[in-house]
């Protein structure tokens, strides 16, 4: 990656307390970080919060960044974790709302109203968080299996297994719209 050398300069400067250098990292990686949050969480305002928090957390954790993974991988890890936190916080909260809303706002309804791409986005957000993260990283961000393992800190077989189930779920959802 072209960014990597530039990144390591910026990281060193930022570690020394240079906020502008950190700003460079933000400029370079904000789109990817925001995009992952958007795909994971499904709505722009939550995604923006998550992206912002991820960068603030990254700044605070800079002293601990050891350069063993690339800055991109590290930032992916932080933002995915933020998203998992948010999702973990939502899940037990509204099992009732879920069942009540399902008939009106399920994928089939959305397909008619807003088209298949929107329905696909929704189908992604209906994956379990555990499956969603590898799906987003692989299919939408184009990371390799190895990189995903690094981001999620899970083994290669675990990446494959989760991704595999996620793919089948998404395919099933798309089939059901026909």
């Amino acid at each position: 990656m072209v960014f990597e050398t530039q990144d390591s300069h910026a990281v060193r400067a930022a570690q020394a307390g240079n906020v502008d250098a950190f700003g460079e990292l933000v400029q370079r990686h904000r789109t990817a970080v925001y995009r992952v949050a958007l795909r994971m969480l499904g709505n722009p305002s939550d995604a923006e919060d998550a992206a912002q928090e991820a960068f603030v957390q990254a700044w605070r954790a800079l002293p601990t960044f050891r350069g063993e993974s690339s800055v991109a991988t590290w930032l992916y890890r932080i933002v995915v974790n933020r998203c998992l936190n948010v999702l973990g916080a939502q899940e037990p909260a509204d099992p009732v709302a879920e069942t009540l809303e399902a008939p009106a706002s399920g994928p089939n309804h959305i397909v008619e109203v807003r088209g298949e791409l929107e329905a696909l986005k929704l189908a992604v957000t209906r994956l379990t968080p555990e499956q969603r993260a590898p799906f987003v990283l692989r299919e939408l961000e184009g990371l390799s299996y190895e990189e995903i393992g690094e981001v999620l800190e899970i083994s290669l077989p675990a990446v494959k297994g989760r991704l595999h189930r996620a793919r089948l779920e998404v395919l099933d959802a798309m089939r059901s719209w026909r």
Partner: peptide
């Protein structure tokens, strides 16, 4: 977004 992050 970037500006807000840096401000924070």
């Amino acid at each position: 977004l970037a500006r807000r992050i840096i401000r924070r």
